[in-house]
Design a protein around this nucleic acid. Structure first.
Lengths: 244, 244
DNA sequence: AAAAATAACTGATTTATGTCAGTTTTTATC
DNA sequence: GATAAAAACTGACATAAATCAGTTATTTTT
């Protein structure tokens, strides 16, 4: 089996049985019966990626999907002029790379680890079998795609109509929603660069820096290096123009 | 059964057997067996909408999906300031309203007929049954969602990185791809207003007017009222910065 | 621990595109 | 067929955000 750019990792067998996501019940795979689980465990491989390493690359052929066990991942596309646009963020228990597998096309985006990240690689044949055999699973896949599509079409509208200030506020809220906060309950649990924040909001690094320091001046956030602490979430929501 | 805003149409039974999309084989429903077809035909209703009429509205609860038999439909969202953003276009043989049904949420966008449009309304129970019973059908649904998601995430990148001129060029190419051309082989088979073109490209009416007349000056298109005739498609692709 | 590279930040300037305010043309309505 | 309404168009002007050109601070590498 060809593991492409994963070859630098020592492949190891993975167990779903003791995977925390299965135990807690927040995984796509909770609906599987014993036989299906055994088949899954037999076929999957656990891989680890260091911060900055690419999990899969735009243009490559997909052979399976990745279930994130721990860590953080960004899904991004490179535009004509070589500028990155982050189109989605993923965390543990999320599936990445599934869209290309399901539509049988090459990856149209790149997945990169934002932190030390452990993933389970699941060959596509296993996924297709599960969709065929297990209606609950296939409905979960459909639900996943539907949610991503909703989010994406919402983002199209925001990109077209909102100002950069609103989009940066929204990006901060997205980061909080996706990666949560540290023990203090308000510092965002991710260390993106100003450039990456710009690439979520669809602006330049300079503008993202300026707007973050504006938010600081307006007492909406606190900044300490890469750490962003939300001190007035209400105002952040208002700045982002979100009312739901 | 509550047909909501469709009440002004005379409901009539529809037949899939003689639907041109089934005959030609370009429908989602081609994989159904005889029994499934009979069930579908029994449950569906054919409805017609005049140009400008709303098929379903952002915020409403979905009870089924719409399969377009003939006509043209735009899917749009209204932004904070009340401005429309067109997120998708649909033509005959396309399914609309399915995303909300599948994820069990209310419509997050509005579907409006761009022309006299005939649709088949399919109650959601029928769709869920088909997904359960027919793997080919559920894979087709997954394929549909995957394609829409790919297109949407690509549009996010374009919105963030391309200039209005490129996005308008792209909008014209999208219109051609979706609605085709008239008998002369080069005039786009749709009559969108400048405002609607602006709302696809994410710009203002004035800017869309100006750029269309720029394209005319540059001998890329011909303009006659709402008709747009492509006279240099290569140049249009180059202007849109599309290379695939 | 020093050197090199990357990221963060700041100010000045430019530019693409939006806004406003109007006229003309087309389409819809009575 | 007249009147009203909507859409198309044009020019002047305003402005949000990009670009450019730096300095300072923080990581990473050797």
């Amino acid at each position: 089996m060809n593991f492409g750019n994963m070859a630098y990792n020592k492949d190891k067998k993975a167990s779903c049985t003791d995977c925390s996501h299965k135990i807690v019940g927040d995984s796509m795979f909770c609906s599987l019966d014993l036989k299906q689980f055994e088949e899954l465990e037999d076929k999957l491989r656990c891989l680890t990626f260091k911060k900055g390493q690419v999990i899969f690359n735009e243009g490559n052929q997909p052979y399976g999907v990745y279930c994130i066990k721990s860590g953080k991942v960004k899904i991004s596309k490179i535009g004509e002029e070589g500028k990155e646009q982050i189109v989605r963020l993923a965390r543990d228990a999320n599936l990445v790379g599934y869209r290309s597998v399901l539509s049988g096309t090459s990856y149209y985006a790149t997945a990169t680890a934002l932190d030390e990240t452990e993933v389970c690689y699941i060959p596509k044949a296993v996924i297709f079998n599960l969709i065929k055999e297990n209606t609950t699973f296939s409905m979960a896949v459909i639900g996943l795609l539907s949610d991503d599509l909703k989010r994406a079409e919402n983002k199209i509208t925001n990109m077209a109509q909102k100002h950069v200030r609103e989009r940066i506020a929204e990006a901060i809220l997205l980061l909080k929603e996706c990666y949560g906060v540290t023990d203090d309950g308000k510092t965002i649990n991710s260390n993106l660069t100003r450039r990456e924040i710009a690439n979520i909001a669809g602006t330049t690094t300079e503008t993202s820096i300026r707007i973050l320091s504006e938010f600081h001046k307006d007492k909406i956030i606190e900044l300490n290096g890469k750490d962003i602490t939300i001190i007035n979430e209400d105002k952040l929501f208002k700045t982002a123009n979100i009312f739901d």
